[in-house]
Amino acid sequence: MKTFREEKNFSWCPGCGHGIVARLCAELIEENNLRDRTCCVVGIGCGGFHHHYMEIDALEAAHGRSIPVATGYKLGLPDNFVYTLQGDGDCASIGLAELMHAANRGTPITVIMVNNGVFGMTGGQMSPETLISQKTPTCPFGRDAKLHGNPLKVSEMMQEMDGVAYLARLSVATPTLVRKAKKGLAQAFKAQEEKLGFSFVEILSPCPTGWNMKVVDSYQRLAKEVAEILPVKEFINKVGGES
């Protein structure tokens, strides 16, 4: 596989979901022959390593700003393929305004938000996606809705936007869900290639280190507790394909 740099070991922690997402992206770029004209815009955080393992052009944007960078890029090169890879801290906290406006405008870019519910790189602090009662270094007694607000349902927020061509919440919690995630991602890529509008996938992913859990336990938490609040679901699909 030309896109994927197999010789370079991932620098993510053991069990990190980012590795699965990176592999799925590399496979899809390869399968769809996109490598020559792909640019990946990564955010700040662990997601920023994403492009290190791929032989594609990449831009590391300032924190939260991947989406306007991708927007400007797409304006300049409308026939190139551009996707952002951001964590939930980058995409849903500091970069939420940019996400919402790009979605509503229907800018034909693909945004992948790897949602692990914490700021992983800085040590697992509370993110907008941290679940109620989940403990983090910045909500040491557990997230309290009255103090910290509720987990932000980013995908649900975009449901009513006409500019969105593909919208889904996916997960890497089990092998079955990983296969499903790849299909969803493929649809999101297709939405951009067919210039149908904005495509967004939220991929639920574990952060065993940030959650202070054993790897297998973190995947089980993802499959149960997290999915109860943030269900895996396809919200919008204007591509028409099966996912």
């Binding site: 640019c39 815009v41 831009l59 944007a61 300032a62 700003r65 306007p68 960078v69 991708a70 927007t71 400007g72 890029y73 797409k74 304006l75 300049g76 090169l77 190139n80 305004a97 940019e98 406006h101």
Partner: peptide
């Protein structure tokens, strides 16, 4: 291109300049 804020403006310009 009228962006949603000057934060978006300067970053759109960044993406364009990268091309």
């Amino acid at each position: 291109f009228q962006a949603e804020s000057e934060l978006a403006v300067i970053n759109c310009l960044t993406g364009l300049a990268a091309t």
